[in-house]
Simulated assay, not measured.
Amino acid sequence: MSLNNMSLGTLVGKQYLFKWKAFAGVFNSMIALQLLAVVFTWGGTGQSGTSMGNVSISMNFYSTDGAIGLTLVWAFFSSILITTKSYRNDDYLFITNRLSSNLANMAFLLTASVVAGLTAICSQYLIQMIQYVRGNTLLTEALPLTLGEWASGAVGTILYVLFIAAIGYLIGCVVQLHRTLVVIVPVALIGFLFIYDFDEPGFISLFEFYFQENSFWLFSVKILGTVLLLFAASILVSNRQEVRK
């Protein structure tokens, strides 16, 4: 069978389903990291208290920030992992080309971001259940979140996970261009974190552009637009690689 007898969509779909099985192990690490974040919040992420006479009140604060943070780390390294040679060689079980392989990887990253974002957000319920079992009194917002507010938070988390995954995927594709880049790129990134002045106005403007947008819809457009650009760049970089190394 040749590519002339199989559409690109069919080819991408077959590879996507295969990648779900091949990459299933990455979800084990995701779950482990999110559970680890829940354990870290066992005693709360903050504390305050007050007293009046013989009465004292102590309050612990809990959040899903840890679970979301570790999920972003997971997304970054997992997206790099699927660009490595061992995973790329699995594609040759199929009639394939660079474009179909990249599109299948990106579809997987999109789906994985949805799963990771939802589980990270829902970790709040696990935290609440644990504190309830421990006998702690739970106080939540005076006005519970509406379905729309919860959905906005969940979608926002998913978009951030996808954003980080797209960055990781591009870095992974760049590293595959030459063996020396496996060392150069990580060293350059680590050096950048230590040397760069994050109080520089350019970085602050960039941070505000992505992380302090008040309009949810404008935020979504910014993130999705950037993700598309990152994925397009990944395809261009990938096309510079040899067919098989």
Rank of each mutant, 00 (worst) to 15 (best):
A166R: 00
F94G: 07
K14S: 02
I31N: 04
S123L: 15
Q212Y: 13
K14T: 08
L230S: 03
I80R: 03
V182E: 11
L36T: 12
V115C: 03
S86G: 15
A22P: 09
L170P: 03
G172P: 01
L126F: 15
G53S: 08
G153H: 01
V155T: 02
Q131H: 10
T157P: 01
E200K: 10
S79I: 01
A22H: 07
L139F: 15
I167T: 01
I223P: 00
V227C: 00
R98W: 14
S78F: 05
L162T: 02
S2D: 11
L99C: 08
A75M: 03
P201S: 02
V133Y: 05
L139S: 15
L159H: 00
V227P: 00
T119K: 06
G44H: 07
F203H: 09
Q34D: 12
L229N: 10
V175D: 00
T84Q: 13
V175A: 04
L109E: 00
I130K: 09
A142K: 14
G156P: 01
T157G: 01
E208P: 10
L143G: 08
F94P: 03
W217R: 05
K14I: 04
S152V: 04
N214Y: 08
S7M: 03
V187L: 06
V185S: 03
T96K: 04
S63D: 07
N28H: 14
A233P: 05
R244E: 13
G49S: 12
L35F: 14
T137I: 11
A188I: 05
K19A: 10
R244W: 13
L181H: 01
G46P: 09
S220H: 04
F207K: 15
I80T: 04
S215L: 02
M59A: 15
N5K: 04
F207N: 14
Y210H: 05
F211A: 06
E149V: 11
T96R: 06
I164E: 01
I190N: 02
V185A: 02
F192E: 10
F61S: 15
L139E: 12
L70V: 12
L118I: 15
T180E: 09
W74I: 09
E200W: 12
A37K: 11
I121A: 14
Y92R: 12
L228Q: 03
K19G: 07
T146F: 05
M1K: 12
G46S: 12
S78A: 06
W150I: 13
F23I: 06
L35K: 09
I158T: 00
V221Y: 05
S2L: 12
A22C: 07
S51T: 10
T111N: 06
Y132R: 14
S79Y: 00
N60T: 15
T45Q: 14
L70E: 08
V185C: 02
V183T: 04
G69E: 14
S234C: 03
L145A: 13
S215Q: 05
D91C: 11
S56Q: 11
T157C: 03
T71I: 04
Y62W: 12
I31V: 06
V133F: 04
T111D: 01
L109K: 01
A151G: 05
M52V: 13
G44Y: 07
E208D: 13
F194S: 03
Q128F: 15
S234Y: 06
G44A: 07
A67H: 10
I195Y: 15
G44P: 02
A233T: 01
M52Q: 10
A112E: 03
F27H: 04
G153E: 00
Y160K: 02
H178R: 10
E141W: 14
